[in-house]
Write a protein that binds this DNA or RNA. Sequence first.
DNA 1: AAATGCATGTAAGACGTTACATGATTTT
DNA 2: AAAATCATGTAACGTCTTACATGCATTT
Lengths: 210, 210
Amino acid sequence: MDAAGARERDLARASDPSPEKPSGTTAELSATGRVILGMLALGTETGYDIKQLVDNSTRFFWAASYGQIYPELRRLERQGLVAGRSRPSGARARTVYHLTDAGRDALDAWLGSTREPVWELRDEGMLKLFFSDAARPEQQLTIVRTMRDRQARKLAELREIEGRVTEGRVTDGPQAGPHITLQLGIAMTEGLVRAWEAAERRLTSENERE
Amino acid sequence: MDAAGARERDLARASDPSPEKPSGTTAELSATGRVILGMLALGTETGYDIKQLVDNSTRFFWAASYGQIYPELRRLERQGLVAGRSRPSGARARTVYHLTDAGRDALDAWLGSTREPVWELRDEGMLKLFFSDAARPEQQLTIVRTMRDRQARKLAELREIEGRVTEGRVTDGPQAGPHITLQLGIAMTEGLVRAWEAAERRLTSENERE
DNA sequence: AAATGCATGTAAGACGTTACATGATTTT
DNA sequence: AAAATCATGTAACGTCTTACATGCATTT
C-alpha cells in the first residue's frame, strides 16, 4: 500500500527553469573544462600537475580523473581556449599548457555567470539513515557514529592542511581563493560533524527513554 | 612554473583500500538498487511511487531518475530481490513490487555493511571561489552571496517540509528514519549557511581594511 | 638496484540525465 | 473541456571511474 508514500508525498515542489539561455557563439564549457581553465589560471602547466592539484585541494568538493583531464585538454585546445606546446624534460614527453585570451574570457564568463550553480550531494550515510527503520536499532546508531567519525576525520585532515598552509606563505593577497575555500571547507565540515552529533544525541536519548 | 602547484601539492594523501571483499555469492547491489530496496521497505509499490518519494525526500542527498529506476527494478527482479505483479488500475497498466526475502536480506546486509560509505560533493560555488582570484573582487563577493542565498533557500524549504511533517503524524516510532534524516539535513544545511556567512564576513572585512 | 615520482594516455564499461513517447484517470 | 496526475518506458547522449599500458627521472 502507500502509507509512507502518501505521508511523505508532495512535501516539496521543484521550481527551477534556468534563467540564462546558451545564447552564444561559443560551445558550452564542460564542468571539467572549467576546472582545467581555473587550474591553468592558477599556474599549473601539465595534465599531471592539474591532477595533482585537484587531488590535493578541489577533490573535497570537485573531483576529476586523468580520463577526463587529458581528453578535455585536447578538446579545449581545439576550441582555442588553451594552447599547449611540447616541453620535454630530458627524454620524457611533456606538454605545457597555458590559457589563451579566449580561454581567459571563458573563465571570466563562467566566474561571472549568474546561472544557478551545480550543487549535488551523494551521501550514503544519510541514505542508510533514511532507510534505517528496516534495520535493528543498534545499527541505526552505528550508521550515525560511522558518519560522525568519518566527517571528523575529514575535518582533521582539512585542519592539518590548514596548518601546513598557514605556517607557509599563502594566506592572503592574490592567492586568497584557495585559502578562503579551505576555510569554508573547514566550516562546512564542522557543520556536518555537529549535525551527525546532534542526530546521535537524538537517537541515544530516545533509547534511554525506552 | 609551479608556484601554485608546488605550494598546494602533497598537502593531503589519500588512504583507503576497502576492508571488505565482494566475498559473496550475490552480485553486488548497485546504488540505485539500494534506493529501490529501501523504498520498497518503506511501503512504496510502483516505479512511479518510488520516483515521487525520491523527489520529495532523498533527492537532497541522493537523486534518481526514471531512466535508472525502471531498468533497475527489472534487474532486481531478475536477481530475485524484488517481485512484481501486474495490478492495473482500470485500463492503466501498473506493476506493484515488493521485497522478497532475499531482497530484505540484501537490504539488511547493506545497512549493516561497514564499507566506507560514499560521500561525494559537487559544489560549483566552492569551485568558483577557489578560482576567484582570476575574477574581479566584487565577483568574489557575488559568488559567496549567491551561494549563501542558495543554501538559505534550501534551508527554508527543508524547514517548511519539517513543519508539514510535524503538524502531521510521523515524528517517531517505526517511521523515525525519514524524520531524523530530515533533522540531519536541516542541521547540515544550517552549517552550510553559516560557513558561507563566515566566508562573506572574511571577505567584507578584508575589503574594508583596504 | 629498487622504489617512488613524473608524465601521458586509452578502452571498456558503469552510471546518469534529458528528452521523447504514450495513454489512462482524476480533478478543476 | 482542459489540466494535472498516474503510470511506464526507451534512446541518445554525456560523464566518470577503473584498470591498464608505457617509460623516463630521481631519490633512497
